[in-house]
Design a protein around this nucleic acid. Structure first.
Lengths: 353, 353
DNA sequence: TCTTTTTGTGTAAGCGCTTACAATGAGGCT
DNA sequence: AGCCTCATTGTAAGCGCTTACACAAAAAGA
């Protein structure tokens, strides 16, 4: 045993470039406990002592070792988030706000992505929990119960964003996807459209996509219309998939839909691209709507009429909720975020037959 | 001391939900060392023992504690990456590839963003190093020496992506921004343009943006032309900034540029939007080019002529380099990635005067 | 048969930090 | 003066894991 210790000690002597708490303590002429306190509850130290320790920290360029802290304190000042994808900008803006809010509280955000795959999500959750995250942020509420159990077993607070639930014992921060989609669809119908089709996101394990379909159905049924099965296509959130979906919807020359409601702006952009390729004018020949109000929506002519999701506010609220839960406080109670409709050129009246 | 230990032990008894290595060992009837070996070098165990341990791990749902591992082994199987922004898709695709490649090797990617601010980048690097990342991936080569020193002091391998250097002792994986921009500009000039302007990214601490300007200058000078100061505007990579920049460039009614080369596709999309708003047709009245070949480029009509950066390949190579360096191997030697030009509708001949 | 190796497993020391409790000394009260 | 409180700092146990070395048993030589 002695030899091992000696060996390590020697290694350390020759190889150490990163100072430890003990080095700081020695230099400042205090105990390791005092240095630790200087880091964690500086107000408990006499000003003179604190200054001495801080000087030593500064001089040595000391940075506390994360693993050591995590092990000893069982806290990491880290929040983990798993988003479905980084490929398009859907979640970027919200996450940026999460990150900023957390950073202001001295908490780091660990980001992972699941590619819309619940198994991958569970795996990532496991990895994040293993890293000792103090809390977890997930998107949406649809996932296997096992994932919820996993998180509960680790006793970590969980916040779901982009949805209002129903949540298995998790806090939700978000907006009413169904209502927003209903409002948007209602607006489309008010423009006189009766032949409406929808390119939705893939609904498997995606409650937002499903809720948006439900919202569209709501609006149509309220007017005695129905969304026929052949008028509903699911497509992954990608340009190309949307192009194909749009072509499929428009294939029957007779009774083509006059409006296509898309599950998000990426789909809408793809649909518009396909329409152009088919020689259809937007909105004269076909109206198209999106969801999210990404940059894309304002750049693609004639501008995508879309639901303006308050990403940043949602991100901030999610972060605040997580911080409160982590500290054992009751989380602030937020109202469901309002989603306005941003009207742009892609929505107009149906063409006269 | 006893009391403290007892207290903790009691807490543990009542509160433990997460099993430790010791619990697995007890259940499998082996020592903790054996369980640890089963995790790290399973081939060293007798098959029968290994199975018993694995069964216990499975039964208890044991997951090794990260902090404990990190502390004891001084390795984390984690690579950190700091990208300038998540707001737009510039880095998303490349990072996705990094993540996939690392995941295949059992390594987790920790992602942070710097908002193009070198101070923030250094701060994030410190945070990642503190977390014990085994290596670091940064974008571009331009940053204060202090950041390089910080990383060197921690003895962590560093890979720079999106650039070819010059790198302060770091491996570079990327492409020649200058050459790609030169090729693109040459193509513009071949179309007959002589009045060329450029909306570049902000060059402060951004060697890619600077290299692209240099490339455009190269091409122009090779034809005896120059990029006049009033024909060069820097703008952050955002739609709105690009719109303003474009308006500024087009303000003088006389001798307006006939082509605007943009530092990336986001800028190009903004420029096209502004052009439309000004009643200018693209490409009949003005040609516009981008860089990166984002989704945006194919969706915005008439399609953005752009440099096709091989993001995914670059990401994969960066990850492979990091993994090799982490294991103390010589990194594979990659050639600079080729950047092709994707010609789309936004580039044409200058209008006849 | 009696060494040598090899193989598989156990023992226990630390990794760098936090924190309960102890110790000290300075004031405050009676 | 004697006792108590409070503020400040020190002491040292332990967080959950890895791993050098010890040791026993099995395999391989001699």
């Amino acid at each position: 045993m002695e030899l091992y210790a000696t060996h390590k000690r020697l290694m350390a002597m020759t190889a150490r470039t990163v100072p430890r708490l003990e080095d700081v303590a020695r230099r400042a002429g205090v105990s390791t406990a005092t240095v630790s306190r200087c880091l964690n509850e500086p107000q408990r130290l006499r000003a003179e002592t604190r200054e001495r320790v801080e000087a030593a920290i500064e001089a040595l360029g000391y940075v506390p070792h994360f693993g050591g802290q995590a092990l000893a304190s069982n806290r990491t000042n880290t929040i983990g988030a798993i988003i479905p994808t980084m490929e398009n900008a859907i979640f970027a803006r919200g996450l940026q706000a999460v990150e900023e809010t957390l950073a202001a509280a001295g908490v780091t955000l660990l980001l992972a992505s699941s590619a819309y795959d619940p198994a991958r999500e569970a795996e990532q959750a496991r990895a994040l929990l293993r890293r000792g995250v103090d809390g977890l942020l997930l998107i949406g509420a649809a996932r296997p119960q096992a994932t919820y159990d996993l998180i509960a077993r680790h006793r970590r607070p969980l916040v779901l964003a982009w949805t209002l639930g129903p949540a298995a014992g998790a806090a939700c921060v978000g907006f009413d996807n169904r209502k927003a989609a209903r409002d948007l669809a209602a607006l489309v119908l008010e423009h006189g459209h009766r032949d409406v089709a929808m390119i939705a996101g893939v609904t498997a394990w995606n409650d937002r996509a499903a809720a948006r379909i439900a919202g569209v159905r709501d609006a149509m049924e309220a007017r005695g219309l129905a969304l026929a099965p052949e008028r509903l296509v699911e497509a992954p959130y990608a340009i190309e998939a949307a192009e194909r979906a749009f072509s499929d919807l428009m294939a029957p020359a007779a009774r083509r839909p006059t409006a296509v409601i898309c599950g998000n702006d990426v789909l809408a952009a793809g649909a518009i691209k396909a329409a152009r390729a088919m020689g259809l004018r937007v909105p004269q020949d076909v109206s198209i709507t999106g969801f999210d109000n990404l940059d894309l929506a304002e750049v693609v002519p004639p501008g995508v009429t879309t639901a303006k999701v308050p990403h940043r506010r949602m991100g901030r609220q999610a972060a605040e909720t997580l911080l409160a839960l982590r500290d054992g406080k009751r989380p602030p109670q937020f109202d469901a975020l309002a989603v306005a409709i941003e009207v742009r050129g892609s929505l107009s009246h149906p063409p006269a037959r």
